[in-house]
Simulated assay, not measured.
Amino acid sequence: MSGFPWFTRRKPLDPAIAERRDQLPAPATLDDRPLREQRFVVLDLETSGLNMSRDLVLSIGAVTIEDGAIDLGSQFESTLQRDAGKPSASVLIHGIAPSALAAGVDPAEALLDFMEFLGDSPILAFHATFDQRMLTRALKQDLDYRLRHCFLDVAELAPMLCPEAGIRNGGLDDWIDHFGLQVQQRHHASADALVTAEIALILFSLARRQGLDSPAALASALARRQRRLQAPAL
């Protein structure tokens, strides 16, 4: 069981934080511009566990893809200040010690910093539903902000664009191995965001060859694939 409290009452927002929050741009839609002309933010979260209703965001890592490449000069990393209580089993996975959480950034400020880094860009993530729900709840709880940004799931794009790999429900490590990528560190938000971005660029190259050269085209193809997978067998 996680040592983290499942509910914490939101403190009144500092007026300066609230003013910055109110100036955040509206999210962009998934449009028909070529992938090379898009800015994406690739996101990874480390959390206190996998329960999307009870666990907490502990750290945020993100990199940007712009002009068809990873912009190594534009990265985001922040550990949120949390009252960890007793160390949970998740510490063995993400390696974030209670002392690091105690010294972290105030959650409202950390989340606002990330949203300013994000801007209006769509988000890429591996198993995006988890990151989307965890981030949505954290933003509502700590910043009183409603997340409306578009997400594309790299875990769904990969088997759609690369069916010959034979990996249907694979994890991040499966695709790292398939594409022969070198990874120095895993289960660290920034490192996982970076390798997810590398996979995304490979997938974008495959998408262009398949005539899916825009976020809107990818989203439509994913929706069609989901309908096929969910259709009852005849």
Rank of each mutant, 00 (worst) to 15 (best):
F7T: 04
R10V: 07
K11T: 12
A16K: 12
P27R: 06
A28H: 09
T29F: 09
L30W: 02
L30M: 09
D31E: 10
P34E: 11
R36E: 13
R36T: 13
F40C: 03
V41R: 05
V42S: 06
L45N: 02
E46W: 01
E46L: 01
G49V: 00
N51M: 01
M52D: 09
R54P: 00
D55K: 01
L56C: 12
V57S: 03
S59V: 00
S59W: 01
V63W: 05
V63L: 08
I65S: 09
A69W: 10
D71Y: 01
D71H: 11
G73S: 07
G73Q: 10
G73D: 11
F76H: 10
S78H: 10
L80C: 03
D83Y: 05
G85V: 02
K86T: 13
S88W: 02
S90I: 12
V91A: 00
G95I: 03
G95P: 06
I96F: 01
S99K: 15
A103R: 12
V105Y: 00
E109G: 00
L111Y: 03
L111K: 00
L112N: 07
L112V: 07
L112E: 06
D113H: 11
F117N: 07
D120K: 11
S121Y: 06
A125C: 00
F126D: 03
H127L: 04
H127D: 08
A128S: 14
D131E: 15
D131C: 04
T136V: 01
T136I: 00
K140L: 15
K140S: 14
L143S: 02
D144P: 00
L147H: 08
L147T: 03
L147P: 01
D153I: 01
V154R: 06
A155N: 03
L157K: 07
A158S: 13
M160W: 04
C162R: 13
A165D: 02
G166H: 07
I167G: 04
I167R: 07
R168D: 15
R168I: 12
D174I: 02
D177S: 15
L181C: 08
L181W: 05
V183M: 07
V183D: 05
Q184T: 14
Q184P: 00
R186C: 02
R186G: 04
H188E: 13
A189Y: 07
A189E: 02
S190C: 10
A193W: 03
V195R: 01
A197E: 05
I199R: 09
A200H: 03
A200T: 07
L201Q: 05
L203M: 08
L203D: 03
S205T: 14
L206S: 11
A207G: 04
A207S: 10
R208W: 08
L212D: 04
S214M: 09
L218Y: 04
A219H: 14
A223E: 15
A223I: 04
R224S: 15
R225E: 15
R225Y: 12
Q226W: 13
R227I: 10
R227A: 14
L229N: 13
Q230N: 15
A233G: 11
